[in-house]
Design a protein around this nucleic acid. Structure first.
Length: 311
RNA sequence: GGUGACAUAGCCAAGCGGUAAGGCACAGGUCUGCAACACCUCGAGCGGCGGUUCAAAUCCGCCUGUCACCU
């Protein structure tokens, strides 16, 4: 049986994925699945630059605007929902188009990485988090070295999140996460996919980011964040860690003024874009679309993408 | 015009005679259940010229620039 066809459109934030994806969906008979860790949340529209209903132009969008901001979200949940969405879309004879900038999520789908080996019980993780605070991460890193030296080498000891996860994985499965990673990395994709990564000149990208942040402020990001706080969403919720939200909260709580908040949002978004680019550079099987080479003309870019898609 | 202060990397900033802290930005990178997360790596020889000294970013002189005050 032929593999399921799949199109991925990604790239750094503000590169212009959204508009292009709707147009592509219309031309190839596709539906869009968002691969964005923040656009899943309801009531978070301005800061996540969520696509509006009329801009969807009738193209169905999945995994967007459905989750309450109190809820947690992560790759594992994402992966499960995406599989359902893909099945749903293809059952209707449409092509799933995954659009979004969360590289880790895309990878999880494309290579069907297995995250299911550990259960839901988080008590051991909490215990490790406590110990990291009281005894220091260094101790945990040494413990990791004793059971899984490869991971200890790969994970810097300051990176407590990853040290803890590696330890948790070992405790729960009796296996080394480094071995698991190697296994998963060797997997071939169950899909017949085209993985497009949009990019542009760095300076152009950065100025687009700054312009977009200014726009968000004009559109009322402050009000949006204030309303979320009034809904009693804790500042440390996954949703509130999103770019723009976290910084606005600092401002609303009086830690700094609005100018500082805007500066921080711009800076952090630039950093984010850079990290995204770094991520995609090391991914396999990506097709880079440098907007500069197409005179930043969507029509030319679409033609190129469709040409590649039909191969 | 005069008097005084200051001039150290893209920005902020230590240094006070012994061979340039740190922070931010920028750049590069790691990532397999929080990923819009978390984490790592990374630069100059001190405004210019001359002098003192074994040794000067550090002391002296002149020049240039900036700021402050005065006329």
């Amino acid at each position: 049986m032929d593999k399921q066809k799949l199109v991925v459109i990604t790239g750094p934030t503000a590169v212009g994925k959204t508009k292009l994806s709707v147009e592509l969906a219309k031309r190839i008979g596709g539906e869009i699945i968002s691969a964005d860790s923040m656009q899943v949340y309801k009531f978070m529209n301005i800061g996540t630059d969520k696509i509006s209903l009329d801009k969807m132009e009738g193209v169905p969008h999945h995994l967007i605007d459905f989750l309450d901001p109190h809820e947690d979200f992560n790759v594992f949940i994402f992966q499960k929902l995406v599989k359902e969405a893909i099945a749903d879309i293809s059952s209707r004879g449409k092509i799933p188009i995954i659009v979004g900038g969360t590289g880790f999520y895309i990878q999880a789908v494309l290579y069907d990485i297995d995250f299911t080996e550990t259960d839901e019980d988080e008590s051991y993780r909490h215990e490790l988090e406590e110990r990291a605070k009281s005894e220091g991460v260094h101790v945990l890193h040494e413990e990791l070295r004793a059971v899984d030296p490869k991971s200890a080498d790969a994970i810097h000891e300051n990176n407590s999140k990853r040290v803890i996860r590696a330890l948790e994985y070992y405790k729960k499965t009796g296996k080394k996460i480094s071995d698991h990673n190697v296994e998963q990395h060797e997997k071939t994709s169950p899909y017949d996919f085209k993985y497009f990564v949009l990019t542009d000149d760095r300076a152009v990208l950065y100025s687009r980011i700054e312009k977009r942040v200014d726009q968000m402020i004009e559109e009322g990001l402050e009000r949006e964040v204030r309303e979320l706080l009034e809904m009693d969403i804790p500042g440390d919720a996954t949703s509130m860690q999103g770019l723009g939200y976290r910084e606005m909260i600092g401002y609303l709580q009086g830690e700094y003024d609005l100018d500082r908040a805007v500066y921080l949002i711009k800076r952090n978004t630039r950093h984010f874009a850079k990290r995204q680019l770094t991520w995609f550079k090391r991914e396999r099987d990506v097709i880079w679309i440098d907007k500069q080479e197409f005179d930043r003309d969507d029509e030319k870019i679409l033609k190129e993408m469709i040409k590649i898609y039909e191969q």
